[in-house]
Amino acid sequence: MGIGVLIVDDSSFFRQQIKAIINAHPQLTVVGEASNGREAIEKAIRLKPSVITMDYEMPMMDGISAVREIMRQQPTPILMFSSLTLKGARVTLDALDAGAVDFLPKSYERVSGSNSSLKQVLVDKLLTLAKASSAQQTTPAAPPAKSTASTKRYNQKFDLVLIGTSTGGPVALQKVLTQLPAGFPSPILLIQHMPGSFTGAFAERLNTQCRIRVKEARDGEVLRAGEAYLAPGGMQMMLSGKGKLKIFEGDARLNYKPSVDLTFGSAVKYYSKHCLALVLTGMGADGREGARLLKQAGSVVWAQEGRTCVIDGMPSAVVKANLADEVVPLPEIAKRLAEVVR
């Protein structure tokens, strides 16, 4: 049986364009459409789709309210469509807090044209979210995952913490960073796959929630202990010296902007074995090769435990390459960081 998709949008034009893209794929089928949040909830419960695409601004009930209610009554992977504006970024972050798992920029021009890359991204996200959800549902119930080395100690001092993530990352980062103490002794670099118009709003949100300071990184910035620096979306972030950042557009051949591999790899020259790098939830394998370079230099690499990930692609790539010193469930990461970074 194919993967059923429920499309929720008050624009009939947008629904029809998305429907055509989805139905053109042999594994995907549109099982229903809704034009407002209330209708979305009713159809989510009745049709039980594998995945839902969701707009925000709709009559009768907005998308965030619908996401929250669907996750309460009929938990389903939800992909948000959002505008590339500051307001759109804040709304999307609210939707992720409410339970949506990923998002795509909403563009009438791109979805109605012949943009094959956009269509492929949409299809890939729908397939990945549906399959990840199906795998979680069919996995036998197990006790809460435990860290593979919850009492492990390290000889070196960690002068820099690096965290790379993608799908599911905004919520994962929030859970980790909000639990860190105000006096955290090292700077933290955050690499989250996210559009450029979103990272400023995300850093601003984290800063209001955390005891450490969180900011969007700037070119030439000098790192300070107890501060976290979020790589700007659409740009690359690397170390240009010990404790100094370089922000630049980067090579078009790199798949991700920002790239976890690039930031991780750049830390080797200046920090050698004094890095602690974490790879959290996300699609693909970004971070694996950067983790390999850090490991070769003697630094430490952790991966998020798979059952606590939205998508286990990035962490499992690190684990399968035998690069993870620890595999840590998301709820334990902040505690472990506080224990070993001194």
Score class of each variant (00 low, 15 high):
residue 39 E to V: 11
residue 262 L to W: 10
residue 51 V to Y: 01
residue 333 I to E: 00
residue 70 I to A: 00
residue 155 N to C: 09
residue 141 A to P: 09
residue 245 L to F: 12
residue 6 L to T: 04
residue 174 Q to V: 13
residue 197 S to W: 12
residue 122 L to N: 04
residue 129 L to C: 07
residue 177 L to K: 05
residue 228 A to R: 09
residue 209 Q to C: 12
residue 234 G to S: 12
residue 183 G to D: 13
residue 317 A to F: 14
residue 275 C to S: 04
residue 74 Q to W: 03
residue 175 K to D: 14
residue 117 S to V: 13
residue 161 V to L: 04
residue 87 K to Q: 14
residue 323 L to H: 07
residue 40 A to Y: 02
residue 194 M to C: 09
residue 132 A to Y: 06
residue 190 L to S: 07
residue 247 I to G: 02
residue 238 M to G: 08
residue 58 M to Y: 07
residue 172 A to N: 01
residue 41 I to S: 01
residue 226 G to C: 10
residue 220 G to S: 07
residue 273 K to M: 15
residue 208 T to I: 14
residue 306 G to P: 11
residue 168 G to Y: 00
residue 241 G to M: 14
residue 61 M to S: 05
residue 338 A to Q: 07
residue 125 K to N: 05
residue 321 A to H: 06
residue 293 L to F: 15
residue 187 P to S: 07
residue 45 I to V: 15
residue 274 H to E: 01
residue 38 R to A: 02
residue 102 D to H: 03
residue 128 T to K: 01
residue 60 M to C: 14
residue 43 K to T: 15
residue 319 V to Q: 02
residue 72 R to E: 07
residue 174 Q to N: 09
residue 194 M to Y: 12
residue 306 G to A: 12
residue 307 R to A: 13
residue 236 Q to V: 15
residue 304 Q to G: 02
residue 174 Q to K: 11
residue 247 I to H: 02
residue 3 I to W: 01
residue 66 A to T: 02
residue 86 L to N: 09
residue 64 I to N: 00
residue 325 D to T: 06
residue 221 E to K: 07
residue 24 A to W: 15
residue 273 K to H: 12
residue 139 T to Q: 08
residue 164 G to Q: 05
residue 214 V to A: 04
residue 155 N to A: 09
residue 57 E to V: 15
residue 185 P to F: 02
residue 169 G to H: 06
residue 266 S to I: 13
residue 206 L to V: 10
residue 71 M to C: 07
residue 4 G to E: 02
